[in-house]
Design a protein around this nucleic acid. Structure first.
Lengths: 248, 248
DNA sequence: CGGGTATTTGACGACTGTCAACGCCAGTGG
DNA sequence: CCACTGGCGTTGACAGTCGTCAAATACCCG
């Protein structure tokens, strides 16, 4: 285990998002769970802003995110970051198939984070023994791919306002679908800084701010510290062209 | 088989790119090949500009591309298309894991195309029997994901010129890596219209044209009908920030 | 030769980026 | 308790890349 991953201290639960399901194992029969348990490392804690891994790191470990939010991104030569995905509790990060040496993106903790780590070779071995696991990882990847493609459509063809509205709507519905937020809650935890919002949407922090102001003055949403309230849900979906059926 | 897929007439081989390997099966032991052969449909021919499938189609079939180029894209509400990937011979298209009802992108033939189709349920069944196949599809997906992420970095953070240079360099190196083009060939088949180039890079056809003109007058490349010659390979990679190691 | 498609070019405008400055707030240390 | 500091959010002025609109030219195929 990397040295910056330390056992989680008592009483430091992440307030943002407690997890209630663990994506990697929920479809695996209980008999395999023992195998899995014996191979996984303990839960580890990573403070906000630290990296779980960086671009070019050897692909040693994959992680299930138990608690907290993580941003996956790639860097441009001028230092700008392009966000690839906001990982929420239950997400599976950093997996690479056998033979791939290095990971091509970075993962940075947005909040304090709890992960469960697996060694990649152990995962590959388990996948060979348990086809359900292989099928499940394939399914997870296919879903990521679809959301990745929606994201590409946004980056290439949508306006700044549409991209931001889409991202907020997507996060909101993913939280609800995972039971990390009550289905009727108008407000949600929102630990992203405006700079990170810009990273995800391919915008500069300054322009992100302008768009957020517009969404606020238009009465679409309101922000408090680390929280976001959706005032006009229908309009948010309409602006972002997000349909509630497409969230994972 | 869909009605628009017709058996390929004699003597209509696609001149652009003959295939020499079939990605889906090259790692599957010969004993499984018989199983695969018995399940796949025949080879089918699709003329340029026709769709293999469209957004929202039920996910019945997946395809291995034998010959020709295919563009995968998603559409924006205003009708603009965002290209997701240019599929080359050997690529695997349209696969969805079990339980997914509909495909979320469209696939349009750029050139005349030959594909080999598989019914999705057959694929799912085969994957359960043959873990190598499941692992291989996972590997294919992971690779697609990485190139998808490079594409996102480009859409979000690179200039028009960088995106176009990157795309051309990527296509060139993918053709070479698949032995569809001699390693030292300075020129390549290039059946994309400038409009499709713009679709792939998130630009308008007009601006695509301006960038292509600049690349031409700067002596980086030259175009003839359906062909593209790279005059200054080093500079093309430099502009696009493409490193030859990242092509599939 | 004719009609449709693709490419090319110019003028203009808008969306978004850049640069710079200021305010707010939380945490820190005196 | 208060000054200090650093991070984040906010705002304005200005610039530039890229999109829009329109039209002319070149090219392909029947």
């Amino acid at each position: 285990m990397r040295k910056f991953l330390e056992p989680r201290p008592q009483g430091t639960e992440c307030a943002v998002c407690p997890i209630r399901q663990f994506a990697l194992f929920k479809v695996v029969p209980p008999s395999y769970l023992k195998d899995a348990q014996s191979r996984r490392t303990d839960q580890y804690h990573l403070p906000a802003r630290r990296h779980l891994y960086e671009e070019g790191d050897p692909a040693e470990m994959a992680f299930t995110l138990f608690d907290g939010w993580v941003m996956l991104y790639r860097s441009h030569s001028d230092g700008a970051r392009q966000g690839l995905r906001v990982a929420l509790p239950g997400d599976f990060l950093g997996y690479m198939p056998p033979g791939e040496g290095r990971i091509h993106h970075a993962a940075q903790a947005i909040t304090n984070v709890v992960v469960c780590g697996f060694r990649q070779p152990d995962l590959h071995e388990m996948m060979e023994k348990h086809t359900e696991l292989a099928a499940h990882i394939t399914r997870i990847h296919a879903r990521y791919m679809v959301s990745c493609q929606s994201h590409m459509l946004g980056l290439g063809r949508k306006s700044a306002e549409q991209r931001i509205a889409y991202l907020i709507a997507e996060l909101y519905h993913r939280l609800i679908n995972r039971r990390l937020l009550p289905a009727d809650s108008p407000s949600m935890p929102f630990p992203l800084t405006q700079e990170m919002l810009g990273d995800m949407t391919g915008l500069t922090p300054v322009h992100t701010n302008r768009v957020m102001r517009k969404l606020r003055t238009d009465g679409v949403l309101a922000t408090e510290r680390q929280r976001l309230t959706i005032l006009d849900h229908a309009r948010l979906l309409e602006i972002g062209e997000f349909s509630a059926t497409e969230a994972e």
